[in-house]
């Protein structure tokens, strides 16, 4: 029997190792797996590389994780937002390395990892500072930049509904990076608001097929990120 449901947050995150690359889904405060992030802080892994579109606002969720000092490097498209105080403190104190990646390139690099590709050529950032040091080539008269895959050791994803095989649906635009990150990590850990019977999600409405998911923890009343 396939059963990816785990009984506790501790079990869901038990073997996250120091030095892991952790993909954290979400955009702004939507789709941030707040409880999984709190679980990771509790679990204690350090020397982490975190991949996330933003760097959190206030002092909760992603910002709280950065504030523990256990994140060595942040791979991010838009770290500086209103309220990104912890990121700014850590960055200006030289305690956090930043790799700034255009948002579409960030997503596609993870998709490439999920898809087993060695990289891709994109017109994004060609001729700019963010392409410095990267291989580029002309294809049909246009300059493209080589971008390499970005694979996670762990992905933390917030879903709306899950079954025990790991089939997922998402709530509104909280979907954002979830499906790509789940597929791009060796260990995809999902928090789901609702656990449903196998077959309860119409097959044609499954957003993330269960083979991309490894563990599911039930979080029936998830917090919205950015709220105390």
């Amino acid at each position: 029997m396939i059963n990816k449901l785990v009984a506790s947050m501790a079990e869901a995150l038990k073997d996250v190792k120091d030095g892991s690359v952790v993909l954290i889904a979400g955009f702004g405060n939507s789709g941030i797996p707040v409880e999984l992030i709190d679980g990771l802080i509790e679990q204690g892994a350090k020397d982490l590389t975190v991949v996330s579109n933003n760097a959190g606002s206030g002092r909760t969720d992603v910002a709280k994780l950065l504030g523990t000092g256990r994140v060595r490097k942040l791979v991010c498209s838009y770290p500086r937002t209103s309220g990104s105080v912890v990121f700014e403190e850590m960055y200006s104190a030289g305690k956090l390395e930043l790799e700034l990646v255009p948002q579409g390139t960030l997503s596609e690099r993870m998709r490439a990892a999920a898809a087993g590709l060695g990289g891709f050529y994109t017109p994004t950032a060609a001729g700019t500072k963010l392409a410095e040091g990267k291989e580029s080539r002309m294809i049909d008269g246009r300059e493209y930049v080589l971008e390499k895959p970005l694979k996670g050791d762990v992905a933390l994803v917030k879903a709306e509904r899950a079954d025990r095989w790991g089939n997922l649906t998402f709530r509104l635009a909280a979907r954002n990076f979830g499906p790509t990150m789940a597929a791009a990590a060796d260990l995809a850990v999902v928090q789901a608001r609702e656990i449903v019977e196998l077959g309860a999600i119409e097959p044609e409405l499954v957003v993330t097929p269960g083979i991309f998911v490894d563990r599911i923890v039930h979080v029936p009343t998830p917090k919205q990120a950015g709220t105390p």
């Binding site: 498209s77 770290p79 500086r80 937002t81 700034l100 255009p102 948002q103 390139t105 994004t124 963010l130």
Partner: peptide
């Protein structure tokens, strides 16, 4: 600290 978001993808 810089912040690029989707700007370069959109511009390209």
């Amino acid at each position: 600290p810089p912040a690029v978001g989707g700007a370069m993808d959109l511009a390209a």
